[in-house]
């Protein structure tokens, strides 16, 4: 790989006011300002967004799929965190 290859950036877009930024893809750019503009040109050609975040892919720390059981399965057994775990007497429909 040539050292002149521009770094990879991940792009997050808020599609409309009130919603979270959501990951939409990645692109290459030499600097942050260029990454923002490239994101605008590449990922909002059809009015997909009103706000953009970019972050260099290399700066993201991700969980390891090999750890996914240890990470995520323990919460499966904590059913009491969900409202459907609890019984309501007849006559009360919404709570």
């Amino acid at each position: 790989m040539s050292t002149n290859e521009w770094p990879l950036w991940e792009v997050f877009i808020r599609s409309k006011q009130g919603l979270n930024h959501k990951h939409v893809g990645s692109l290459r750019a030499a600097d942050a300002e260029m990454a923002l503009q490239n994101a605008r040109d590449v990922y909002t050609r059809r009015s997909e967004g009103i706000s953009i975040w970019v972050v260099q892919s290399a700066l993201i720390t991700a969980s390891d799929p090999a750890d996914s059981e240890a990470y995520f399965e323990p919460s499966d057994s904590k059913v009491y965190r969900h409202p459907t775990f609890y019984d309501l007497p007849d006559g009360i429909e919404h709570m």
């Binding site: 290459r28 503009q37 490239n38 590449v42």
Partner: peptide, 11 residues
């Protein structure tokens, strides 16, 4: 010179 800039100039 690179895809991203190609798209930008076309815009």
């Amino acid at each position: 010179p690179i895809l991203e800039e190609d798209i930008a100039l076309t815009n």
